[in-house]
């Protein structure tokens, strides 16, 4: 396995393209699962549905409720996909990365959290009780998974001895982090679903509040929100590869292909969970987050810290 290094500047432009393709694959897979659950056949139409839906939304007229807060609504709607792409900047593909920041792991976390502000702004700005409720729900839910999510990231940084994503990949040359940090991996995947308000954590856009944040959005605004959700899920799936699954490490195939294969596999798992689980009420999840996830992830961080100190001979 080659060490990950900084790629040329133009690779930054490749990030949104690749992330977009990954997101489209994820959305198409979700349509396939839905079609199977409904007993429909899987046709080309089902596979192309996300693209067709995007085209339809691009043509659809955007509308807004009277006295909606345009500034906040627009800012929030645009920030959701932008945050996902910015987060994905630090994900290496093979042995090249668009930006090998010295604090890549913190950067990823900071960009994810932009989604909090963005979704709340979008919910508030639509001047609708459903949007407002959705925005509040997203923030409330965030309090339950953000600490476990941060502990999972800290565990990886502790194991790698660095906040640089390429160092995390290098540290997994002999043993993938998922093997000795399984709890952190699971917590990371759960929060990936929650941050992209999908799967069992889709209360922000729940049917019981007629679509929540999405309720008043149509046209290109709605497209940005829905695309942003898929981009964020894809970014988190892609990020789990360098953090837990050994980056580009693997036999026979070239490194970049291994990265893609692993990212697609994780995304497939996330989409499957998303499609097969019922919505989880945020008050139930709050207690689970604080009483189960936080102690478990803390324990995981402790185990990793003890192992690291033991291996390096006690500082």
């Amino acid at each position: 396995m080659n060490a990950v290094s900084q790629g040329p500047t133009w690779t930054v432009l490749l990030v949104p393209v690749l992330l977009g393709v990954l997101a489209l694959c994820g959305a198409a897979f979700a349509r396939v699962l839905d079609a199977r659950a409904d007993g429909r056949g899987i046709s080309g139409g089902v596979l192309a549905a996300p693209l067709a839906e995007s085209g339809r939304l691009l043509l659809q007229q955007r509308r807004a409720v009277v006295a909606s807060d345009r500034l906040l609504a627009r800012t929030g709607v645009v920030l959701v996909p932008v945050a996902a792409v910015l987060a994905a900047l630090v994900v290496p593909l093979g042995d090249r990365t668009a930006s090998d920041l010295s604090i890549g792991i913190v950067w990823f976390n900071a960009m994810e959290v932009v989604t909090w502000a963005a979704l709340w702004m979008a919910g508030w700005g639509s001047n609708s009780v459903w949007g407002l409720l959705g925005g509040y729900r997203f923030v409330v839910q965030g309090l339950s998974y953000e600490l476990p999510h941060m502990f999972a990231l800290i565990t990886v940084a502790t194991g790698a001895g660095s906040l640089r994503v390429s160092d995390a990949v290098a540290a997994q040359e002999s043993l993938w982090f998922v093997v000795w940090m399984p709890v952190a991996f699971v917590a990371f995947l759960l929060s990936a679903l929650a941050l992209s308000f999908s799967g069992p954590f889709d209360t922000a856009t729940g049917r019981d509040i007629v679509g929540g944040v999405l309720a008043e959005y149509s046209g290109v605004d709605r497209l940005l929100l829905v695309a942003g959700r898929w981009l964020m899920l894809s970014a988190a799936a892609a990020m789990s590869v360098p953090l837990f699954l050994g980056g580009s490490g693997g036999p026979l195939l070239p490194g970049w292909l291994w990265t893609l294969v692993k990212a697609v596999a994780v995304l497939g798992l996330l989409v499957w969970v998303r499609s097969r689980t019922a919505t989880l009420r945020m008050d139930r999840f709050a207690e689970f987050g604080w009483l189960v996830l936080i102690p478990l992830t803390l324990l995981q961080a402790l185990v990793v810290a003890v192992v690291v100190v033991g291996m390096t001979g006690g500082m």
């Binding site: 913190v106 900071a110 909090w116 502000a117 923030v139």
Partner: peptide, 12 residues
């Protein structure tokens, strides 16, 4: 980056 991260969470 930490200031940006904490400020976003805090202000939300």
């Amino acid at each position: 980056i930490l200031v940006i991260l904490m400020m976003i969470m805090e202000m939300v």
